[in-house]
Design a protein around this nucleic acid. Structure first.
Length: 827
RNA sequence: GCCGAAGUGGCGGAACUGGCAGACGCGCACGACUCAAAAUCGUGUGUCCGCAAGGACAUGAGGGUUCGACUCCCUCCUUCGGCACCA
């Protein structure tokens, strides 16, 4: 890149203030400070090699909020740390051929330098690094707490396995059947794994979303979808005995549409249903049936769950009884029924379910209408598709004639009374699989003793240290399994030899509680102090990318609720307000090293200074939306800061310059000044409209360039204008603001100053311009006194020569007067 | 398929509660300064007609409500995101 352009001396200013802020400990807070607290948290980063401007948006937004709140008189907590365990760090280390710890700590140093250069300030005395024992000791403690509560358990299950990362994954880490990290196709594998019982909290995680008014609607909806609660009924279908003796227990299905029960003309099991072998025992020609079932089982699950996939099935030769109609209906097995959801058994109502309809048509199964369309009566023989909307029950025994929505409860109650079925709730959410067969994570604090079984590591023995001299290349089993020193353990009960759990925890466990650790980060007696944490949390403002809408944000909410139940914290939700900033796009794609479209902040800062990068980042568009990075836009921000510098520092020069444009007077400048304060304040108090706040400042600078102070009073206003401008800009461009502030003769740090307030009387002009429309089109405008009455205004308008021309002969039907704004003459 | 967000000049984007569409910035053109360039300062810049004054058209498309619609309602199209054979 070219050498720095001639401009204000940002390369002297910026390092000077970084040093000053460090020395003054501008960001260090005291927990017991009497001012109102404000906890501003940005999502802590993975320590990758270097940050790009896309990452920067997060920290710049956060820093602007922090500095603004400081000026509003809050005791602002702004901590930072590193989410340092996990696959990305380990994979990067493997590539470089060095231990993950070395590369991670190296990366952290580089990122800290970058954050400092950006001018983003944190209370570094509170730094947490999740891969260091003084942190993960307490991550392990959290695990033990969940274990005590029965919320951490081990089970053999079909789990998602990434063949490239050589580890199991949580459901949340599988995107479109692929590994979230490496996009390799995920396969299913039967393994014994550790899970967190997040499903036990499904209802509360869902219901408490309503408490999160400060969260973006879309994030709440995404979590709602993910949890996927559906209320319905479990119904027992008695099996018709093939040998006359009815000894088999009934098959249970789950449905959200009990209202359609009278139309259930067959029943379908998932090919994986555990009772299939038993059901088939008495069937004579079962070879063919079993072949068909095995074919369905072999079908790739990701393909099988595609809507387009052809439905396939086979009749089992068995029958069940529809418990309401007492009819004998055939029992089928079909590929469209999933074992993972509900009971793996579905009552099929072809007339009112698209999938059942398609299946029934293919295999010529009976279709019976039981919900009629009130607008257009249905006929089973002529139906082209299932009728899935509400309607009136027909052919439904005692329930005929009832509206379908209403009938759901009535039928369910009837079933409960007669022990046919019971109301129940199903969730899409699965328990959180937390074991990883990889090295770079916190060891799961569990011991196995041949005599005493599975035992938690006693709290006093924490941390279970992650050994450093390990051959850690992924092999599919945890490298800790064969590490002798690590495995050398004693059973806490019988003192005999015990083995350690070799798996490590998912990195997302580390980040479920880091925001608690920031309060008392060096406490080696406990994870956090309940009193302090209860004072400082929930986080007032959380800021981060929307990619964590489900994963991190759901897991953190879960752990918070567990800690609440344990009585160690007094709040149910960790983050009161959430702001999700948009991505930065370059050349049509998300900025990423692999795509080769990253813009490095280091070079930009060298060329233009950090304030320019910050200002452009905030100005480029609404912060919650994606934005396209344009190098030329950076120049614009840089030019603006030059204008600010000149108007503030080199005032005399401007005073002496020849007036070329239209000059503005005292009154207009005063008006603009207060209007700008109002606009910037409202933009920051609202949903962080930095882009319009910056543009308001630009407008004000433009107007200052038209001001020619001619008197002492004028010069005072000019000075006041400049000082206010600098205060308003300080959260966005802290270095230049500090520098101008001190050059204007202030010795106190600008962030210890009060945020300016506006005077509404200055916004009240005696004369205002009114827009005049004829038939809704602007035809003229008038300057009128502020306190003119509507009558007077109307009369004035009708006398106006231009308006007369437009009215010309037509009758005036009505005159609409909107005070202080507009008059519309309707002809 | 369901849910959500968005669609405005050459570009990024503004527009309060329904009240001057295009603020602010980029780009472009012209002028001032300069021997010249850069930087800076100024002027102009939606489209069409017009020398101009001015007028017509214009916020994804089409309807509607209203004195008045980027904004509200209906139908549809496109892009992005989430969920999805979930019973």
């Amino acid at each position: 890149m070219e050498s720095p352009i001639r401009a204000y001396p940002f390369n002297e200013i910026e390092p000077k203030w970084h040093k000053r802020w460090d020395e003054e400990k501008l960001y260090a807070i005291h927990l017991k400070d009497p001012r109102p607290k404000y906890y501003c948290l940005v999502m802590f980063p993975y320590p990758s090699a270097a940050l790009h401007v896309g990452h920067g948006r997060n920290y710049i937004i956060g820093d602007a909020v922090v500095r603004y709140k400081m000026m509003r008189g809050f005791n602002v907590l702004s901590p930072m740390g590193f989410d340092a365990f996990g696959l990305p760090a380990e994979n990067a280390a493997i590539k470089r051929g060095i231990p993950p710890k070395t590369s991670t700590l190296e990366n952290i140093q580089n990122m800290k330098r970058q954050l400092r250069e950006w001018g983003c300030g944190y209370d570094w005395s509170r730094e947490v690094i999740s891969c260091l024992p003084d942190y993960y000791k307490w991550t392990q403690w959290i695990f033990l707490k969940l274990y005590e509560k029965g919320l951490a358990y081990k089970k053999l299950a079909a789990v998602n396995w990434c063949p490239s990362c050589q580890t199991s994954l949580a459901n949340e880490q599988v995107v479109d059947g692929q590994c979230e990290r490496c996009e390799t196709k995920v396969v299913s594998k039967n393994l014994e794994q550790w899970f967190f019982k997040i499903t036990a909290y499904a209802d509360r995680l869902l219901d408490d979303l309503k408490l999160l008014e400060g969260w973006p609607e879309r994030v709440r909806i995404m979590q709602e979808n993910w949890i996927g609660r559906s209320k319905g009924v479990e119904i027992d279908f008695p099996i018709v005995a093939s040998d006359g003796k009815n000894t088999e227990s009934p098959l249970t299905c789950f449905t959200t549409r009990v209202d359609t029960i009278f139309g259930a003309t067959y029943m379908v099991l998932s090919p994986e249903h555990p009772r299939l072998p038993e059901l088939l025992r008495s069937v004579s020609d079962k070879a063919e049936i079993e072949t068909a079932i095995n074919r369905m089982k072999a079908q790739d699950l990701t393909v099988r769950t595609l809507l387009e996939t052809e439905k396939e099935g086979v009749f089992t030769g068995r029958y069940v009884l529809n418990p309401m109609t007492k009819e004998k209906i055939p029992l089928w097995v079909a590929n469209y029924v999933l074992m993972e959801y509900g009971t793996g058994c579905v009552m099929a109502v072809p007339a009112h379910d698209e999938r059942d309809f398609e299946f029934a048509k293919k295999y010529k199964l009976p279709i019976r209408v039981v919900i009629d369309n009130p607008k257009k009566p249905l006929k089973a023989e002529t139906m082209k598709e299932a009728y899935v909307d509400p309607g009136i029950l027909v052919g439904s025994g005692a329930f005929t004639g009832i509206e379908s929505e209403e009938s759901k409860d009535k039928i369910a109650d009837f079933m409960e009374r007669n022990k046919i079925g019971r109301k129940t709730t199903q969730y899409r959410l699965r328990d959180w699989l937390i074991s990883r067969q990889r090295y770079w994570g916190a060891p799961i604090p569990i011991l196995y003793c041949d005599k005493c079984g599975t035992l938690p590591v006693p709290e006093k023995d924490l941390p279970v240290l992650l050994p450093e001299n390990v051959e850690f290349k992924p092999t599919g089993v945890s490298p800790l399994r064969d590490h002798l020193a690590f495995q050398k353990a004693k059973c806490p009960k019988c003192r005999g030899n015990a083995r350690r759990e070799p798996d490590t925890m998912d990195t997302f466990v580390d980040s479920t509680w880091y925001f608690l650790r920031y309060i008392t980060p060096r406490d080696d007696k406990k994870a956090f102090d309940s009193n302090d944490v209860n004072h400082w949390l929930p986080v007032d403002q959380y800021i981060g990318g929307v990619e964590h809408a489900i994963l991190h944000l759901l897991y953190s909410r879960f752990v918070t609720k567990v800690l609440y139940d344990l009585g160690v914290i007094s709040f149910k939700e960790p983050f009161a307000r959430l702001f999700t900033q948009g991505m930065i796009i370059k050349d049509g794609a998300k900025m990423s090293k692999s795509k080769g479209n990253v813009v490095s902040p280091d070079e930009l800062i060298k060329r233009y200074g950090a304030d320019t990068v910050r200002l452009y980042t905030l100005f480029m568009g609404p912060p919650e939306r994606d934005a396209e990075w344009q190098d030329q836009g950076v120049e614009g921000a840089f030019r603006f800061l030059g204008r600010v510098w000149r108007v503030a520092i080199q005032q005399e020069k401007i005073e002496n310059e020849r007036i070329e444009g239209e000059a503005l007077g005292h009154k207009e400048i005063r008006f603009n000044l207060h209007r700008t304060i109002k606009k910037v304040t409202e933009d920051l108090e609202g949903d962080f409209h930095f882009n319009t706040a910056v543009s308001a400042c630009m407008e004000f600078v433009n107007s200052l360039y038209r001001f020619r102070p001619s008197s002492e009073v004028d010069r005072n206003l000019f000075r006041q204008s400049v000082e206010t401008l600098v205060l308003l800009l300080a959260p966005f461009v802290p270095h230049i603001a500090e520098e101008i502030w001190s050059r204007l003769g202030h010795s106190r740090d600008i962030f210890k100053e009060k945020w300016p307030t506006y005077d509404s009387s200055a916004l009240q002009l005696e004369e205002e311009e009114i827009v005049i429309q004829v038939a809704g089109r602007v035809r003229s405008r008038l300057k009128v006194p502020h306190d003119i009455s509507e009558k007077e205004l109307e009369a004035l308008v009708l006398k106006d020569s231009k308006i007369k021309e437009w009215v010309n002969g037509k009758t005036v039907r009505k005159v609409v007067v909107i005070p202080h704004r507009l008059v519309n003459v309707v002809v």
